[in-house]
């Protein structure tokens, strides 16, 4: 596992890959969260209109 230290560039390389992972994760989470919010809001709206 020593090769994962990448010589003297440990911090730089891991920082890059972690940032890439964070970007992907944030994109997914925000997409899912927006969708959840949309569905909740629409459901409330439809319920209100029924009455």
């Amino acid at each position: 596992m020593e090769f994962l230290l990448f010589d003297k560039y440990t911090t730089y390389i891991w920082a890059s890959y972690l940032l890439a992972f964070a970007t992907v994760a944030i994109l997914f989470i925000s997409t899912k969260a927006t969708h959840k919010r949309t569905i909740t809001q629409l459901r409330i709206k439809y319920k209100r209109n029924k009455k």
Binding site: F3, F6, Y9, S16, Y17, L19
Partner: peptide, 23 residues
């Protein structure tokens, strides 16, 4: 991380390119 080699000038730091360039 594993298969690709280090670069003759940049050494291991070349691996940053594999996220930088696609992005």
């Amino acid at each position: 991380f594993v298969v690709s080699p280090a670069d003759y000038q940049q050494g291991e730091s070349v691996r940053i390119m594999y996220v930088h360039v696609p992005a």
